[in-house]
Amino acid sequence: MAKSKRLYLYPFWLRIWHHVNAVLMIILIITGLSMQYSNPVYPVIRFDLAVSWHNLAGILLTVSYFIFLIGVLFTSIGRYYVIKTEGLAVSFAKQLRYYLIGVFRGEKNPFQVTEKRKFNPMQLITYNLIMHAITPITFITGWALIYPETIVLNVFGYSGIMLTSLVHTIAGFLISIFLIIHLYVITMGKSTRENLKSIIYGYHETHEGDEEHE
């Protein structure tokens, strides 16, 4: 039996934040889709309800985002988000190769979670993009749409509101894609359930033996 060590990677507040965030995102995606593809005959959610839920969830998400940001800035989890450019390309390529080829051959994950690093290079980059670029873009454009008088009227013959909505929709779409892949990657831990367990209980098991991957 390989020796295993338990790392406490996800403090309680972070897990609560993560789940609240997940629920809000899902509400936003569903109501957002329902508005975008509004259909008088088959309304998924009644339009005015979708608008109010979407607004409410968006406002809560903004609050939740700043709680997260404070956590990243002022607690120890912040260091996990720092990108070191040295050797990034190589380790990124290794990680990509692992996901595309290695994982089928039962190779070892080139990335080992330690107290210092929680995210592999691919996660590091996507998480940073999602949390520090795309999410802020969605809620900034979202707030602008709640207060449309803040938006420039007309840009090159197109309505400023339209361009803002477009950016908002594209960013929302990227987050939906992220969400699907994120959910799938849960199953890619040491065992199919392990990642799920760690985000629920907060502990990550590190295994020093070379146990078989699923």
Partner: peptide, 22 residues
């Protein structure tokens, strides 16, 4: 936004990420 936030994070955590980046 991304570089700014990461920059601030690095500053606060005292990790220098600018050196190898150039």
């Amino acid at each position: 936004m991304l570089p700014a936030t990461i920059g601030i994070i690095s500053l606060i955590h005292g990790i220098d990420m600018t050196k190898p980046a150039k």
